[in-house]
Simulated scan of single mutants.
Amino acid sequence: MQAAQETPDRPPLDQGALSDAAFLSANGIPQLTVVESTGSTNADLLRGVSVDPGAWPDLSVLTAEYQSAARGRLDRHWEAPARSSVSVSIVLRPVNAEGRPLPTQSYSWLSLLAALALREALLETAGIPAELKWPNDVLVRGQKIAGILAQLGPMGDGAVPPVVLGTGLNVSLTEAELPVPTATSVLLEHPTTVDRTALLKSYLSRFATLYRSFCNADGDPAAGMAGGPSLHKRVEHVLTTLGKQVRAQLPGDHEIIGHANRLDDYGSLLVVDAAGHEHVVTAGDVVHLRPWTPPGEAGGESGYA
């Protein structure tokens, strides 16, 4: 029987390093606020951009040591011990270099762009290879290490509609502290570091680079970005969902079973059923997306877990 894992030391975020003027300026971050505790950083920023839009310009960041009412997609609740995670939200007001707003249909790519940035940060900072699961999860060896939630803020008077993008990364959670058996944490993946400040800075830096490149391409996912392949190609390359048989559960007990083929221009998943019909599954509609094994084949219905 495996020995119980000791609770790791959990130092606070290094506010000095996070508020360093050179770091913020290099990444175009106008402000970065660290709070000890809050209900939800996403909820705080959604309220902030509603009450005082001018106080939260593009790429404003709010991070918390502890969240008591964090929410994921479809209002799913999650909670982690204080200082065990990176819990961060960013205000986005997407415009190109000339100040022209991006088309709102391009907003559907922002969660995937954030997941890609986090994957790069995990690999380069902690030595952990990760993959993406459509529409908004980051996985390591098939286990969820992070989730991302993008929420549209209020439409202003002709202003760019803001997006609040929240990310929750499990860092020092022990096996006993994981919210579900299908989760994991940086600590459990034999990392080179569990320094939350380093992970957060790396994530923000990579996100800012990809985001600015995406905005300057007018939100075109097929455009080359940041000196390399397009966002569309980069995401598809590390998306573990593609090439597999999946079951997409939709509202009203509707479901689609088929082969996850590719992403369309709006970041939706294209699933081809047994009859050869192609279905468009959008991130806003899907309730669950899981691997699927035909009954009677090896594995039976284990893919539903």
Rank of each mutant, 00 (worst) to 15 (best):
P162R: 03
A217T: 12
A146G: 10
D195H: 14
E6F: 05
I128S: 01
S25D: 08
L263E: 06
V34E: 02
L18R: 13
R234H: 11
A117E: 14
R141C: 06
T282F: 05
T192R: 07
D195S: 14
L169I: 04
Q31S: 04
A21N: 07
R76T: 11
L13H: 10
A130M: 08
L113H: 05
S40D: 00
S205V: 13
S85N: 13
L200G: 05
A260R: 02
T197Y: 15
D157E: 12
G252V: 08
M1R: 05
N27W: 06
A176M: 06
M155V: 08
F23K: 07
A26N: 10
E297T: 14
A223R: 14
C215W: 10
T182Y: 02
F214G: 07
Y203I: 03
D265I: 12
G168W: 05
Q249Y: 02
A80M: 09
A22N: 07
D273E: 04
D220M: 04
V286W: 09
V160E: 03
Y266R: 08
A222Q: 11
T174P: 00
Y107F: 15
L102Y: 06
R247D: 08
T7D: 13
L102M: 06
L187E: 03
P135W: 11
E278P: 00
N96W: 06
S37Q: 08
A283P: 10
L250N: 12
L269Y: 10
D285C: 05
V35F: 00
G267I: 10
S50L: 14
